[in-house]
Write a protein that binds this DNA or RNA. Structure first.
Lengths: 229, 229
DNA sequence: CCGGATCCGAATCGATACTG
DNA sequence: CAGTATCGATTCGGATCCGG
């Protein structure tokens, strides 16, 4: 283990030693949405081997990034420590950067509610956001997205929302259904009208005009310099 | 290679596939300071095996993060593409986060001018910075740090500054000499007076009062919740 | 010296099976 | 549910070597 250190003294090297191992940051990503059980993490990251998940959870604990919390009457969850939670800016910045290199999903790529939740948070324009209440369906992930003083995102399905989570009250003003093409809207490469015209998103219920508000609320600010690999 | 993908559709997973391999982000860190030759990178990252450096450079090229640029009359350098340069916020955020977990250097940890340059940029308070002209010596790294309309950091030694780099004119108002204890100042856990009292930094030339300006210009803004592993 | 390529043992990862 | 055990496939690290 000591032989696998970088031998570099500095913040970046230290950070990478804490969260740079394979799968580690994806675990952090899911834990940013909320505490998760071992099995929740496994479900959200189907391709992670169980021994690797175990190893990463142990290492992240040793690094002070996450902690194990026993839940009363059976079970335990992993959650970020305060220090781990301060990876939020890092993960969001990475999510924005990576979003721009995102192409079509591969054949067997998976897509989780946690991934979409983090993506939305990453491109949320807090300063200029107008209030709104949206239902967003991408693939088989359904989220309730409520913007008022703050941003609240609730998983609707699948499966049922987490036990501790309160269901949102009321009805969303719009239901937006999309596939992977929603990335064009979130990167800001197309506007709401063009996204509808291209079939990237479909308004399946509610007021279609609210889609523009959604597009104004979520998206990259500086939508330029596509990767062009 | 295809077997080593995460099988996740999302920005974070894509980003980690591009720059999540071992050593990759440290290469990006050094390239953020400026174009570097293969040998420069090797020197700044002494523990990287040459085959790994080669492999990473190739992968980062394929990912559109860096490019090879031939230099006229012998030689070539690697530099970030525009897309790669937009990792700046990511790397700085990671540097700030990792800085807080930084302890004493290990026996054979190395410390490069590029690492210090990135660390300073990462904790630079652009909005509130007053102009200043500093010389900073940490270990055997010497930097000229000039703050006016923007932040300019020039390597003084070792070795000689890069060929293309113009040497700063004039004299710095202060020369600050420090060791690894400078992290206490940069994390904001101690102020200028306390850092001097603790021996973390020494003013070896110039106006000692400028150290407070330096400390006001560079440091973490929210200096709390130490890792406490 | 620069910019790697090659080889090999050690460590890690991935997949599957299995257990308290 | 929450992992551990095992084992082959990769990757990494360290060293050496090579063409300009």
């Amino acid at each position: 283990m000591a032989a696998r250190t970088y031998g570099q003294y500095g913040g970046v090297a230290t950070a990478v030693e804490l969260i740079g191992e394979r799968w580690a940051l994806l675990i952090v990503r899911d834990l940013l949405v909320g505490p998760r059980r071992y099995t929740d993490l496994k479900r959200g990251l189907p391709r992670i081997p169980t021994n690797i998940l175990s190893a990463r959870l142990k290492e992240l604990q040793d690094g002070g990034v996450i902690r194990r919390v026993p839940i009363r009457r059976c079970g335990l969850v992993y959650e970020l420590t305060p220090y781990g939670r301060e990876l939020e800016p890092v993960v969001y910045a990475l999510a924005r950067w990576g979003l721009r290199a995102l192409g079509e999903p591969g054949e067997d790529d998976t897509f989780s509610a946690d991934a979409l939740t983090v993506a939305l948070r990453a491109v949320f324009r807090a300063e200029t956001a107008d209030p709104g209440d949206y239902e967003l369906r991408v693939g088989d992930v359904a989220l309730r997205v409520q913007v008022d003083a703050e941003l609240r995102i609730t998983r609707l399905a699948p499966p049922a929302p987490p036990v501790g989570g309160a269901l949102p009250v009321g009805e969303p003003g719009i239901t937006i259904t999309a596939g992977s093409g929603i990335r064009h809207l979130l990167t800001g490469r197309v506007d709401a009208a063009a996204a509808v015209a291209a079939g990237d998103v479909v308004v399946t219920a509610g007021d279609p005009a609210l889609l523009e508000r959604f597009a104004a609320t979520f998206g990259l600010d500086d939508a330029e310099s596509p990767p062009l690999a």
